[in-house]
Design a protein around this nucleic acid. Structure first.
Length: 769
DNA sequence: CATACATTGCACGTTGATTT
DNA sequence: AAATCAACGTGCAATGTATG
């Protein structure tokens, strides 16, 4: 809202004012709706051609676009206690023989959940690739071999599945876990550690082997095959550890990749909130290939060792504060070619790569099927040829396929079930892909931009929001001016005239350009958000959250992070907008002119419906909409107290739907004059320094390249500015231009240089420097 | 229906921002 | 610089749910 301090105060202290703001918000949505219709192409996140990303509806990006944030994924890797195992030299020898010598040397690397989550948002299970705006990329077999040092050639990791642990454990470990340590065919990692973490030096060979098998099961169960259940590992891998020599002949790297692909695919669905698999591999792959979230090295990279994830061992605890999913999402949305390292291992010393790995690296280019028991996943180097130093041409069509579901049937040998996939793996050496010479990559990019999902986050800039608010304000003023009061009761007439006066007051003060904004630092925004984004949890009774509950309104309104507010506004608006545009305006409940909207009902309607916010809009008749037969006359007056009450309820967990946050934010906006003051401050900054588009980057301690991303956003915003102008002209064409339109246009001009970052100066008055 | 595995709440140790 | 403590990260177990 562009408001002067005076009107901001009025809004906060005056029930009528709240109503006005609320009405503005509602109207605002309709204005946006028009924008979407007018400029559908520019705001279309893709895919424009859905032949490749045929599962878009299930993908998390659809939910995000609809305003349903899921936050950071809960990442499950359980390497923290791996170093508590004490292995004898003999055991270490067996581990090496089994092919896990390098995996064992990899320390626990702290995971950047928001980074992983943002990457997952760009993962597509249709292609098993990340859809970045530079093209498709993926974690390849070559990456697994070089990053983890696991074998990518060899026998497929497959065998019998089990529904009970005791017999298998008895056979291979010499001990069976009590039932409290098992769950179906899974055994707790803690059981393995408790009984096998130390092997007596003088133990007979059989005992050493048993202890080593337990270690290997713990190792794979906590790293490459970690489950979302966290503390359990299927015992089906045990028989593969029977003979250590034989164990070393399996393609554990291919299995690890199959498992990771499956995990990424699952986590990329909007219904999921956790991710398993080898996330160290994923994260380090990201560090190597993308200049996003990459930590500084505090050791000399000249001394890189094998496997290459060790490069990030002891990485500096870089300032990741405020780097949440939104941060990384924006970085990925505005990724530039120079941020991508297609051949990151060129700088590594190839001498450290052991011969048995080097000799199989050709398979990194094999278009094949990766197998890990019931999980078979396609490996598609042909879609990511630039990762092999080749030119990328348009790849062949993806085959639609249903993944075979897990082999729950205990005792079933999956070899039969997976026959076709196994055959593909067996032919892996016959399907090494090659790039063509003289390929026109611009043709590929043209094709790619049609089939991909271009944005995850909404690129609508805050300046557009301001412009739209302004336009809405003008419309409201006009509607109030020309409103037919015939047949309305006194109270309703009073409300209309109040709307009129406040709308004009706001516009009038903008016209004068005499916006005086207090330079007093914003206070009471709570502590600066710490660390990484909190994983979404439902709990409201937790001790941990009790403090938050107390001032939840504050928390949500302003203090969490710079970005959420911007996104919050956009999300809220856009969710509604989508209801209109996508759902063909068939589900809205329209309320008659003159009725007042109760926030309580709004919240309830929303909660009940679970999907669409039902709008009522005083403007309905003007827009020629028919009133719904089930229209209610909502005469409920609401005031600040009521709003606070509702917001409080929301914070106490009454609202369950993800997009309820949007409602909460809307309520916060209404009741928090601070928010409005903050926007004032932003506005002022902008007036003072319209060219300061790098502010956000500075504040977040970003390097130059990310600042460029901010510039990129400016471009986005300008793109959308033009969209807004379409709407403006549309409005004025009707001959309904209110007197203050010129002033509004003036503000529009000012706003057009704004970035997300400008509003991100939450609680930080230094923005006015 | 049994099973696998995803989700979630809670406990507890750790981290690191803020205060003294 | 040390102390404090909120928030975070992780492990664990109970519960929920999709699937063969």
């Amino acid at each position: 809202m562009i408001c002067c301090p005076h009107s901001a105060k009025q809004v906060s202290n005056d029930a009528g004012g709240s109503r006005i703001v609320f009405a503005f918000n509602i109207h605002f949505h309709f204005i946006l709706m028009e924008v979407e219709v007018v400029d559908l192409y520019a705001t279309n996140p893709g895919p424009i051609d859905g032949s490749v990303l045929y599962d878009q509806d299930k993908h998390v990006s659809t939910a995000i676009w609809d305003g349903q944030e899921r936050g950071a994924l809960r990442c499950h890797e359980h390497t923290s206690k791996l170093d508590q195992w004490i292995l004898t030299p003999k055991q270490i020898e067996l581990v090496h023989k089994a092919g896990f010598g390098y995996l064992r040397s990899i320390p626990a690397i702290s995971l950047d959940n928001p980074l992983i989550s943002a990457l997952v948002e760009r993962w597509r299970r249709e292609t098993n690739t990340f859809h970045l705006n530079v093209g498709e990329m993926t974690v390849t077999l070559k990456d697994v071999a070089l990053l983890l040092g696991l074998a990518i050639d060899g026998d497929p990791v497959i065998g019998l599945t089990y529904t009970a642990c005791s017999s298998v454990c008895e056979k291979y470990l010499g001990k069976a876990p009590e039932s409290s340590y098992t769950s179906g065919g899974m055994v707790k990692l803690s059981w393995l550690k408790e009984f096998f973490f130390r092997c007596p030096e003088d133990a007979p060979m059989e005992v050493i082997e048993q202890h080593t098998r337990a270690y290997l099961l713990y190792l794979v169960g906590s790293t490459i095959f970690s489950t979302t259940t966290g503390n359990k590992v299927p015992v089906m891998y045990l028989p593969l550890f029977e003979n250590f020599e034989r164990c070393g002949q399996y393609a554990w790297g291919a299995a690890a990749l199959a498992y990771l692909y499956r995990a990424l695919g699952n986590a990329s669905l909007k219904t999921q909130s956790t991710i398993s698999g080898c996330l160290t591999l994923l994260q380090c792959w990201g560090y190597f290939h993308l200049n996003i979230g990459r930590p500084k090295l505090n050791h000399d990279p000249m001394h890189d060792r094998f496997p290459f994830v060790l490069r990030w061992k002891g990485k500096q605890s870089c300032p990741t504060a405020n780097r949440d999913v939104l941060f990384y999402r924006k970085a990925l949305d505005s990724l530039k070619p120079c941020d991508v390292e297609w051949l990151p291992y060129r700088i590594m010393d190839s001498m450290v790569i052991p011969e048995h790995i080097k000799s199989t690296l050709i398979l990194g280019r094999s278009k094949t099927m990766l197998i890990c028991f019931d999980k078979a996943e396609r490996h598609v180097p042909n879609r990511c040829l630039r990762q092999y130093g080749m030119l990328q041409s348009i790849p062949e069509n993806v085959e639609h396929w249903e993944r075979k579901s897990r082999g729950v049937d205990g005792g079933v040998n999956l070899s039969g079930k997976m026959e076709s996939e196994l055959r593909v793996w067996m032919d892996r050496h016959l399907h090494i892909v090659d790039g063509d010479v003289g390929v026109d990559e611009s043709e590929y990019m043209q094709w790619y931009l049609k089939i991909t999902r271009r944005f995850i986050g909404r690129p609508i800039s805050l300046s557009s929001e301001f412009q739209r608010t302004n336009a809405g304000l003008r419309d409201i003023a006009h509607i109030a001016d020309t409103f037919a009061t015939k047949g309305l009761d006194e109270e309703q007439i009073a409300s209309i005239s109040r709307i009129r006066s406040i709308a004009h007051e706001c516009l009038g003060e903008q016209v004068g350009g005499s916006v005086i904004v207090s330079a007093v630092p914003l206070s009471g925004f709570g502590k600066k958000a710490r660390g990484k984004e909190r994983v979404r949890r439902k709990s409201n009774g937790s001790k941990r959250l009790r403090k938050d509950d107390g001032d939840g309104v504050h928390y949500n309104g302003a203090s969490e992070d710079e970005q959420p507010q911007f996104y919050g506004v956009a999300m809220e608006v856009d969710h509604l907008q989508l209801s209109h545009v996508v759902r063909e305006v068939d589900q809205e409940q329209f309320y008659p002119v003159g009725s007042e909207l109760s926030p309580v009902q709004l919240v309830h309607v929303h909660a009940d419906d679970g999907e669409n916010l039902h709008l009522c809009d005083a403007n309905m008749e003007m827009q020629g909409e028919e009133n719904n037969t089930e229209s209610d006359y909502l005469a409920t007056e609401f005031n600040n107290e009521e709003l606070k009450h509702v917001a409080g309820d929301a914070d106490n967990g009454e609202l369950k739907h993800p997009s309820d946050n949007a409602i909460k934010e809307e309520l916060n906006e209404v009741i928090h004059d601070k928010d409005i003051e903050e926007l004032d401050a932003t506005n002022r900054v902008q007036d003072a320094q319209p060219s300061d588009t790098h502010k956000e980057a500075d504040d977040l301690q970003l390097c130059n390249d990310v600042s460029d991303a901010a510039l990129e956003e400016v471009n986005h915003s300008q793109q959308f500015d033009s969209a807004d102008k379409v709407v403006c002209s549309h409005n004025t064409a009707g001959g309904t231009e209110p007197p203050s339109a010129t002033a509004a246009a003036e503000v529009t001009q000012h706003s057009s240089h704004e970035t997300h970052g400008d509003i991100a100066q939450k609680g930080d008055c230094s923005v006015a420097v």
